[in-house]
Design a protein around this nucleic acid. Structure first.
Lengths: 221, 221
DNA sequence: TTCATCTCGATACAAAATTATCGATTAACC
DNA sequence: GGTTAATCGATAATTTTGTATCGAGATGAA
């Protein structure tokens, strides 16, 4: 009964299925089997079935799942139908990039305003969203019941801004700064650790190259 | 002896330790215990020790680890000393944001050129990096032995561009497009799935709010 | 010098996630 | 209409990851 009992890896795979299915729908395909999804996305078919099971969607033997039903099930499960308003703080390059993504709205998040400490940015309009001065955040956030805060500020001020957000009623923070935020437990924090990502890449590439070298030059040479 | 036997979660935590340690060093702190790292970063101290163990760094009982040594160990382990040249394709908002990050170079990756299909972008200079036409990619990539390709193009063309990259000798791809690339097994792909991230956030927030509602309004009312 | 205490690091244990197995169900074909 | 073949979904086994335990070593104080 507890809704939180869904494995997080499953949660992370569902959007991937979703985009895959949307592309299938655009091609006009109506049915799809879990095995096929698994093969195309590099996930075991049993895993795919488990993941899809949590959304409540049911497949039929011999024909698989209806693409349309799956899409709707995932949307409902991830709550991508109810759009939540978000404020973005830090209208730099990355912030601008996020404002440019039209697709977030389909993912249940709508950025309704951006904030920046720099006077140069304030007053601008990026992708139709106004950049406001930081001072306006508290009052607006409370009045509009903003639930999501997007943090695209430098690491040095991230903690401080995050605390300010939480103080204004923000319940979830999407953090792009490379630090671990120290916030009350009830605040939901999702970190986009670009440096972790590039770190993994860098390490894997280095190992890969060393193994290539090792096979090309046997140790007993 | 096999270098690939390091758990991937460990790999993802190491950059987080790294940034934490760099901040400690800036503050002038010389020694640090695994327990303290764990507390500050929300990781169990036993986990921290295991993670640090793979880098080869040794701590001393009673005093902990030397901050400087740990930083060097992590840098070496992640191969962040040897800088690898990278090409970025897709000089849109996100691509521009990545070009603006000076910190990647410290993470072993240097973006030496950007490419874009749009004539509007070609010829510009972003953060000192030239935007070149796509046609120049193959020849330049081969001549410069580019190992890393950064993919910040729309989803529709991501597969195609990725194949082109691999054909030009690129060994690792940092993929920001919301699709699963179908490439030879030996190619290293690191996905930055922003939609998965926002999906998890959206879902958790929805569950969180429902649980708040449930406690505020008992089911037997 | 000896003792108490703190921290490391190895080993053992527990939980979670992934992978495999198997019977049940259903559409298509003969 | 019965048989075949393919897929689903539940259960079980394996693997991976994370957590706890415990002895050893080192520091600093008595």
């Amino acid at each position: 009964m507890r809704a939180e009992s869904v494995p997080e890896p499953t949660l992370r795979r569902l959007p991937s299925y979703y985009h895959y299915l949307v592309r299938l729908r655009e091609k006009g395909q109506e049915m799809i089997s879990a095995a096929q999804i698994g093969e195309d996305l590099g996930v075991h078919h049993t895993q795919v079935r488990k993941d899809l099971a949590v959304t409540g969607s049911q497949g039929k033997p011999k024909v698989g799942h209806r693409v349309e039903d799956l899409i709707v099930s995932i949307e409902n499960f991830l709550n991508w139908n109810n759009v939540t308003d978000a404020f973005l703080v830090g209208a730099g390059h990355l912030g601008t990039a996020l404002l440019g993504y039209a697709g977030f709205e389909r993912a249940g998040v709508k950025i309704v305003a951006a904030f920046d400490a720099s006077a140069k940015m304030v007053g601008k309009k990026i992708q139709g969203v106004s950049v406001l001065p930081m001072e306006k955040f508290p009052d607006l956030a409370r009045r509009m019941h903003i639930g999501i805060g997007i943090l695209t500020v430098p690491a040095e001020v991230a903690q401080e801004v995050a605390e300010m957000m939480v103080g204004c009623g923000v319940q979830a923070i999407w953090n792009f700064a490379p630090i671990v935020l120290d916030l009350p437990d009830e605040v939901i924090v999702e970190n986009v650790a670009l440096y972790s990502s590039i770190g993994v890449l860098s390490r894997k590439l280095s190992v890969h190259r060393k193994s290539l070298l090792a096979t090309a030059t046997p140790p007993n040479s």
